[in-house]
């Protein structure tokens, strides 16, 4: 058996152990997260995902991606093992970040939100969903969040948010109904920021948001 895929194994690791039920559970976690922005929901992925992807991102990929969708992989996620695994399990076409339905990236490799597909006024649903890998982020970012799905307002810790995020997100909410939706995926948890969530820097320690340094 020969492999031309470098470090990618000839046979990709398995996906969900129960494709139907596991995808349903993962989808409900994503739906819950988008319906209740900033709240965290448990997310169970496949047992042996590609190392760079991890269980959480793998669960999201298996749940939302297929031949009808396009994806862009950023930074460390853009490796051969991940690509081969996604090709095998989802068939999603890989395209440039500016035209992808789904963008998978770590905070450092996420393109500016305004450069992603925002949809149009007539078809705002044709916008990118950015799936952010927030594993191991240690920043101090903290916001007060309000908008649909949030009862009043809530404090939202965003250790992954770098200095440019607050302004980018403000611009993203300002173009509503156009805009990018953000899924924040940890190893086994998911939270989300739909384009309707308004963020204001939390009036706490007065700390500048630190860049996520994990990768």
């Amino acid at each position: 058996m020969t492999s031309t895929a470098g470090n990618a194994p000839a046979i990709p690791a398995p996906g969900f152990s129960d494709a139907t039920r596991d995808a349903q559970r993962a989808f409900r976690a994503i739906l819950d997260a988008l319906s209740h922005p900033t709240q965290r929901y448990p997310l169970n992925g496949p047992a042996h995902p590609p190392a760079a992807l991890g269980s959480g991102l793998a669960a999201v990929a298996l749940t939302v991606l297929d031949e009808d969708s396009t994806v862009w992989l950023g930074g460390a996620l853009d490796d051969r093992e991940v690509a081969a695994w996604l090709d095998f399990h989802t068939g999603a076409r890989r395209v440039g970040a500016a035209s992808a339905d789904f963008v998978f990236a770590a905070p450092a490799s996420l393109p500016a939100l305004g450069s992603l597909r925002l949809g149009t006024d007539e078809a705002p649903h044709l916008s990118t969903t950015a799936v952010l890998d927030v594993r191991g982020c240690q920043g101090m970012g903290s916001f007060t969040a309000e908008g649909p799905g949030i009862n009043g307002s809530t404090t939202f810790n965003a250790p992954w948010a770098d200095g440019r995020f607050a302004e980018q997100w403000r611009a993203n909410t300002a173009v509503f109904p156009r805009g990018v939706d953000l899924l924040l995926v940890d190893a086994d948890e998911i939270s989300a920021l739909p384009r309707t969530t308004r963020l204001a820097p939390a009036p706490t320690d007065g700390q500048e948001a630190e860049q996520c340094t994990s990768r």
């Binding site: 494709a19 739906l31 988008l34 939302v64 649909p148 799905g149 109904p177 939706d181 384009r195």
Partner: peptide, 22 residues
């Protein structure tokens, strides 16, 4: 499963844009 994924993607955008018909 593919039909479910298509509907699920529509549902996620519907929730993100309240009241908009996807």
């Amino acid at each position: 499963e593919q039909t479910k994924r298509m509907i699920r993607r529509a549902l996620l955008k519907a929730v993100a844009i309240p009241g908009f018909q996807v």
